[in-house]
Every structure is written in structure tokens, then in C-alpha cells.
Amino acid sequence: MSAPPTTSLPEAASRFLRGVRTAIDGGLDPLAAAEAASSELPKSLRDAIGRMSQRMRGEYHEDEWGFDEEFAEAAYPFFELLYDHWWRVEADGVDNVPSHGRAMLVSNHAGSLFPFDASMITGAIMKRHALPRWPRFMVLDWAFSLPFLSAFMRKVGGVPASPHNATRILEQDGLMMVFPEGVKGTGKPFAERYRLQRFGRGGFVEIALRTGSPIVPVAVVGSEEIYPKIADSALLARAVGAPFAPITPTFPWLGVLGLIPLPSKWRIEFCDPIDLSGLGPDDAEDRRIVFEISEQVRETIQQKLYENLVKRGSAFI
């Protein structure tokens, strides 16, 4: 990379301080002096300081859902680290995600409280797609009643799981990620991993039909080993008001350390989109059509899960 001749940061800093000193000696107040000497700082640093100052004044963009793109970008490197090194994610078929217009991503769901699967699917789109865009994902209502998690989820694109929210995001031509297994998926025991649970009553198909959105089935392999649930503590769940409380080989025995997800190997496959343009909003009332499509999506994901399990080989190494 041919960079323009730049000075090192310490050098620039000392030149800046010297400039401030000279200006103060010249009779300026410290603030004006800093302003005068700021040209000594490298442009990238000045830009970063400028952005920070704008954020502190509230001058940044949030959309109506509270999604804060700058915040999501700032949090992204952490998830990229998990993506590349912790879970060594391999993604196939990312270009099946439409680069513009509305679309619904439907995926299997696992991994207890934090939707790591949603963040890795997001990572695959942001890293591998030719025209990346931030998807929105449905989050269990319970997470939005918790401090920190609720604010974090909202800023990175999570929305409370509600058919009204999915409909509105698709009407705004967004990319909506849904997990029809819901809590039954996240809370299933280790022995039942990769066996898809019931897809609710097919509500996601109704929404796709009403909004005229194509469905992209997504199979995620790896997420179901990060918290191997060997038992369930109804007592603990009731005590904290959670929908379920998993007992894993490490949790709650190792306390907070037990919340570190295991480093399984992941594969994410984006399947061919299911085009529903031949059907209309009226077909959302037809139970038979809704169940048929729901079952088609479910079978596609299930089959791709088995294929990718074979391709992946051993779970951890």
C-alpha cells in the first residue's frame, strides 16, 4: 500500500502540543490555541475526534427502530473476531440474499439467550455479500425487558418479536430475519440438536404473502453446540422470570465463565429464495397454502442442516 508520507502519532502529538504552547505564549486562550494547532494532528485522528464530538452532542442517525449504524459498526469487530477465529464460520450462497428490496430470511434457532446465530448470519452478509446491508432480526420479548441487553439489541438491529414489526420492516423494503422455532428452538436439549421444532402456525408465511416478500431459508450449523443444554431448571427460570434456564456442562457451575459459548465450527448456508410472487395477499388466509409453504421451508432447512453437518465433520476441531 502506498501511503502518503505521514508522521508517526507521537511525533504529531508533540508537534501539536508545541503548537498549543506557542499559541498560548502568543496570548491565545488554551481552547483557541488547541484549535489553531489542530492542523498538526493527522486527518484521521481529527475526523475521529470530530465524530466523537458529534455523537456527544446527539448529532448522529438512528432510524425509527432505534438502529444506530455507527454503533453497529463499532460493535462489528467483536463479532468479526468470533466469526473468523472463535467459530471459524464458512458461509455458502450469500448471494441468494437479494441486494435490494424486501426479503425474509428464515433460519433455525439455537443458542439460548443471546442470538449469536443472528449476529453470525449478519456477519456473513456484511463480509461476503457483494452489496451488504444490515438485516433486522426478531428478538425474544424477554430480552427487551432486561437492562443493557435491550439497549444493545435495539442499536444493532434487533426488534421485539411481533408479526406487526416484521410486516412493517418488510413494507419498508428491509431484510427481516425470523426464527419460526422461537423459544422452542433456543431451549431444546442437546440430544435434539439440528432437529427442527414445529414452525409455529406458519405466521411467517402469512407475513411474507401479505407483504409480497421472497423467503430465503438459511441453515445454520454450529450454533446448536455452543451451549449444549443437558437439563432445564424450571426453578431457576421461574426465579429470574426467564422462559427457560439451561443447565450446560459449564453453566451454572462456572458462573459467568459458563456463559462463554463453546468454540464449535460453524457453517451457514443461504438456500435458493422461494419466490412467492405467483401468490397474493389473499392466499395468506388459505391455511393449506400457508402450511404447505411453511413445510417446504422447514424441509429445505432440515435437509441443508444434515448436508452441512456432514460437510463440517467434527464439531469442534
Partner: peptide, 26 residues
């Protein structure tokens, strides 16, 4: 509402944000 700026502020006189803003030339 903020422009009309009712009430007193706690932030020190020039405010950290505006100092940073001036240094950055914004």
C-alpha cells in the same frame, strides 16, 4: 426543545463536546 435550552446545565463551561469539536475543526 434543546435549542430553546431551558434549565441549567451541569457540563463545565465550554463542554467537552464543543472542545473536541473545535479541535477537530467541526
Amino acid at each position: 426543545f434543546a435549542r430553546a435550552g431551558q434549565g441549567m446545565r451541569l457540563a463545565p463551561a465550554p463542554g467537552i463536546a464543543s472542545v473536541l469539536g473545535r479541535v477537530a475543526g467541526v
